[in-house]
Amino acid sequence: MEKSKDSLTKELVTTGALLTAFAPLERVKNLMQNQNAIIKLGRLSKPYNGICDCFATTIRHEGFFSLWRGNTAYLIAHLSVQSRKDIEWSRVGFVSFAAPQLLFYPFLYAGTRLSTDVKKTISYTVGNRQFNGVMMSSEKP
């Protein structure tokens, strides 16, 4: 059964709103999962003492709106894949499903890299992130 254009639009808007609403939890989850690597990179001075400490530290050092860092890349990837769910599973259907997966996986990767990119909390200096956005890096390797 084919969905109407209005129904698909409503579904995409709802999904986007939910992803944006839960973006702070996604960022904190990524920070908690990757804190050992962030410490090894010298961007975090000590491990987080839990979820509340991670929220508080992130807001204190980077600001409230940094909790949505990387959300745009996640939205692009998830909404693009979401809009392709109702395809028919044939050879053509498989190709039309697999192509967006391959094309938008880099956005998921970029979203994860952006969400785990914290300001250096050791020196407390402003503006020394590793990445500025999906396409730009602010530091030289």
Results as ranks from 00 to 15, higher is better:
Phe65Thr: 15
Trp68Pro: 04
Pro100Leu: 14
Ser123Pro: 04
Phe55Ile: 03
Val92Trp: 06
Ala21His: 06
Val95Asp: 10
Leu79Gly: 05
Leu103Tyr: 10
Arg60Asp: 15
Ser123Val: 06
Leu108Ile: 04
Ala98Gly: 08
Thr72Gln: 05
Leu8Gly: 00
Ser7His: 06
Ala23Asp: 04
Lys119Asp: 08
Asp6Ile: 12
Pro106Ser: 00
Ile87His: 08
Asn49Ser: 13
Val134Lys: 00
Lys120Arg: 08
Lys46Met: 11
Val95Met: 15
Gln130Asn: 13
Thr20Lys: 00
Ala110Ile: 01
Ala99His: 00
Val92Met: 04
Phe131His: 03
Glu26Gly: 12
Asp53Ser: 09
Gly63Leu: 04
Ala17Thr: 07
Phe22Asn: 07
Val126Asp: 12
Tyr109Gln: 11
Val126Ser: 10
Thr20Ala: 01
Gly63Ala: 08
Ser138Asp: 09
Phe131Gly: 02
Thr15Phe: 11
Ala37Ile: 05
Ser83His: 07
Thr72His: 00
Ser66Pro: 01
Trp89Cys: 07
Phe55Thr: 02
Leu102Ala: 04
Asn71Phe: 04
Ala37Val: 05
Phe104Ser: 00
Lys29Ile: 14
Thr125Asn: 06
Asp53Asn: 11
Arg129Tyr: 09
Arg91Asp: 15
Leu12Ala: 13
Phe97Glu: 09
Thr14Glu: 07
Ala17Leu: 14
Trp68Asn: 06
Ser4Pro: 02
Leu44Arg: 08
Phe104Cys: 01
Thr121Cys: 11
Arg129Thr: 05
Met136His: 02
Thr9Phe: 13
Phe55Met: 03
Thr14Arg: 08
Ile39Asn: 13
Met1Gly: 14
Pro141Met: 12
Ile76Asp: 05
